[in-house]
Computed example of a mutant assay.
Amino acid sequence: MRARESLRTPTVPDYSPAPDEPRDVRLRQLDRVRDALEQARAVIARDGWTSGAWFTVESSSGARQAAPSEAYALLDPRSTVVSACLVGTLLRLADDPDRATSVRDVRACVDELYEATHEQMGHSPRPAGRSFPVTEQRARLQAVTAWNDAPGRTREQVLDVLDRAISRTIVAACS
């Protein structure tokens, strides 16, 4: 009996934090959203941005917009993409196994981008970090996509909206 007890490994103490408080959960989610938005901003600033399709790819005749049928295969971060639209960039981040960004984070990013575009147009935005029903999230995704693809849209405008969305998450975390 003593021999068996001496061979047991000691119990590892539980250092996990106490159950999450609602405020801690909210702050953690805001931090994840801010991080995903900052990553998207860095990718667009470094690699460029596209309008009218999720992705621009290299072909034998030069760069071309990827067809909708190619889009899901191009979400893989190992695929060769020249540039991506705002939503395409976020989706590639969520598909990257080396990043912590999740699809839930991308949905929250789209919500913040939607509010940032309204803020940019002079409308009063809703508070950051709110959750919305799936039907409203789809409508917001379509609105952000339409905003991205608007004629005359520039990369600088896209970076500005990303900066506004990032600022929204920072301000919400501080309040």
Rank of each mutant, 00 (worst) to 15 (best):
I44H: 02
D47L: 09
P97T: 02
T80V: 14
A84G: 01
S60N: 15
V106L: 03
Q39I: 04
S69D: 12
R78D: 09
R41M: 12
A45C: 14
V103W: 07
A40Q: 01
S51E: 15
D96G: 02
D47T: 08
S83W: 03
S51Y: 13
L75N: 01
P68L: 09
A84N: 01
S69N: 10
T56H: 10
S69F: 11
V82Q: 10
F55L: 02
A53P: 10
V81Q: 01
P68R: 08
A84P: 00
W49H: 13
T80R: 13
A73F: 14
D76K: 00
V82D: 10
S59F: 14
W49F: 11
Q65V: 05
E38H: 05
S79P: 06
G88S: 07
R99D: 13
W54C: 05
R107A: 10
G88K: 01
V106K: 01
G48D: 08
D76V: 00
R41N: 12
S60H: 15
R92M: 05
E70L: 07
A67I: 05
A73P: 11
W54I: 00
A84Q: 00
L75E: 04
A53T: 12
R46C: 07
A94N: 01
L86A: 11
L75F: 05
R99V: 08
R92Y: 04
R107T: 11
A71V: 13
E58Y: 12
A94V: 04
R104A: 14
S79A: 14
S60G: 15
A45S: 15
L75D: 04
R64M: 15
S79V: 03
A63M: 07
L90N: 01
A53S: 15
P68N: 09
D95W: 07
G62S: 12
D47R: 09
T101C: 03
T89C: 07
V57A: 07
A45G: 13
A100L: 11
A66E: 11
P77K: 00
T80D: 15
R41F: 13
P97G: 02
W49S: 07
S102Y: 05
I44G: 01
C85S: 15
R99L: 15
S79C: 06
R107D: 10
D95V: 01
